[in-house]
Design a protein around this nucleic acid. Structure first.
Lengths: 270, 270
DNA sequence: GGGGCCAAGTTGGCCAGCCAACTTTGTCCG
DNA sequence: CGGACAAAGTTGGCTGGCCAACTTGGCCCC
């Protein structure tokens, strides 16, 4: 069983996406190529991947680089990995890029839907205790709070309440109210999003939610709270998104080796 | 900035947990020690970690091993990581072990609550198309389906419907109905859980849910669907858990380098 | 005082090699 | 025919080294 798989890569080069740091890294190119091969079914449903050494030779890189690439796929849940056997294809789960997950606009476009957004309000006010905690601000600091209704091809699906720290908020405040993607605009102004913590649960719609989304007060909404930080670890956003049921779901993969998911009992916060 | 941090590890040894493979690996011990130091605040709120080289010297390992350890912490969202600067402490987020996330019993005990479970029904029947797809079974295969009501210190919080493939189901069927943790019991019989895919959304309670959980029919429930596989990649469980609102929430960390989370638009599945 | 420049420090990435642990396969023997 | 054993194949883990890319801080000059 040698090289029957039509390897589309002999020398790796070109193509630098806007997503992910140092997309020019060898191991990322190898990972991308293998991901492509796996999702198109080149190795079968539960097939076995070539050995690390074989891949190293095929791509003309060291075994260490191949291992780095395979670690990416393993973390994404595409392949298994255990000592003694070749890696096995787990699934062809489509994993989204980070920006696609953070930006409603990116996500909608990747889905083929037309994202829309209407800015309902934008206020500047002193941060409360919870906000100072989340955004790591000193007492007395001010925050910028936006309220936006998000639509997918015209229909309302989500209410988004975002709290920005001052250095980000001033940029948001200067935006014209019809800008669809705040995230994209902030990136162009040097605000980078690299890490995010998400918490997902269910809440009842309050009066404001109900009016905007067109549902009853008290109707259940899928809530995602998200705190995003920049490369230096400084919080740049604290957002609370409330989705109408049936519009979205969240998927996570985790394994023994990488587990970023956890389950929490409700406490009396918020 | 020398060695002011009281390093509790000069030679790394002893202590093998039941969780995680090869816990004796050096990089895991280093990671565990650093995690401990970070969560106890030894490096401050947004403090900087020692350089890789310094850590390598402190622990008596190579820089590569330290990098492996730090990759774990970075994936857990504990520290940032970018070229040119020392790593910065992101947060002290408590990340659960894998088994704690898969097993309701494990999770409850770690919380200090008393887990309970009542087996409502256990049936063996031919798998439908969706089940064959999820569990990767051939047409005509049978599955074992359990329905369990889960309690936390006496109060009902969740309804669990689990579908097992034959080779796992036979073990479950032999269990006495009062066994609290199926997961633990299965592990003792050689069924290992290593990878899981989770999907989280909201559904309305059906008549059965309502009766068991003591809520209205149509009341919103937080649903987690989970497919678990063993080390070889073979599905061993397909479960659907429905939580009463306000009892639990799910947390995920993701970053530019590791993103296992994704958001999906509802389709007409299920 | 401010801005630009340079050097030191730090992480990202890649390579080559070695051994241990484990799985799988096939052989041999009872 | 079945089980024990041996050998080959494969991944996990660790080391040591090298260079590039990037950040930070200090210095110098205007």
């Amino acid at each position: 069983m040698g090289g029957t798989v039509t390897s589309s890569v002999t020398q790796l080069d070109d193509q630098e996406g806007q997503d992910g740091p140092s997309g020019g890294a060898l191991y990322r190119q190898v990972a991308a190529d293998l991901r492509e091969a796996i999702t198109t079914g080149a190795y079968g449903e539960a097939g076995r991947l070539p050995a690390e050494g074989a891949l190293a030779e095929r791509y003309g890189v060291s075994r260490g680089t191949v291992r780095q690439a395979l670690a990416v796929l393993r973390a994404d849940g595409l392949v298994t990995s255990r000592r003694g056997t070749r890696r096995v294809v787990l699934g062809n789960a489509r994993v989204q890029s980070f920006s696609e997950l953070l930006s409603f606009t990116h996500w909608a476009r990747a889905l083929g839907e037309e994202p829309g957004g209407r800015l309902e309000s934008l206020v500047r006010r002193p941060a409360d205790a919870a906000e100072r905690e989340q955004l790591r601000l000193e007492p007395g600091a001010e925050v910028y709070v936006t309220l936006r209704l998000r639509t997918l091809s015209g229909t309302a699906v989500m209410v988004e309440r975002t709290v920005y720290p001052p250095h980000v908020g001033v940029l948001v405040a200067k935006l014209p109210p019809d800008v669809v993607s705040h995230t994209e605009h902030l990136r162009e102004h040097g605000i980078l999003f690299t890490d995010a913590d998400h918490t997902i649960d269910v809440v009842a719609a309050n009066a404001e939610d109900a009016k905007l989304l067109g549902c009853r007060r008290g109707a259940p909404l899928l809530r995602e709270r998200r705190r995003t930080t920049d490369p230096t670890g400084r919080p740049v956003e604290w957002s609370q998104d409330r989705y109408l049921p049936g519009t979205v779901s969240f998927s996570v993969h985790n394994s023994m080796v990488t587990s970023a998911l956890s389950r929490h009992a409700r406490t009396s916060d918020d």
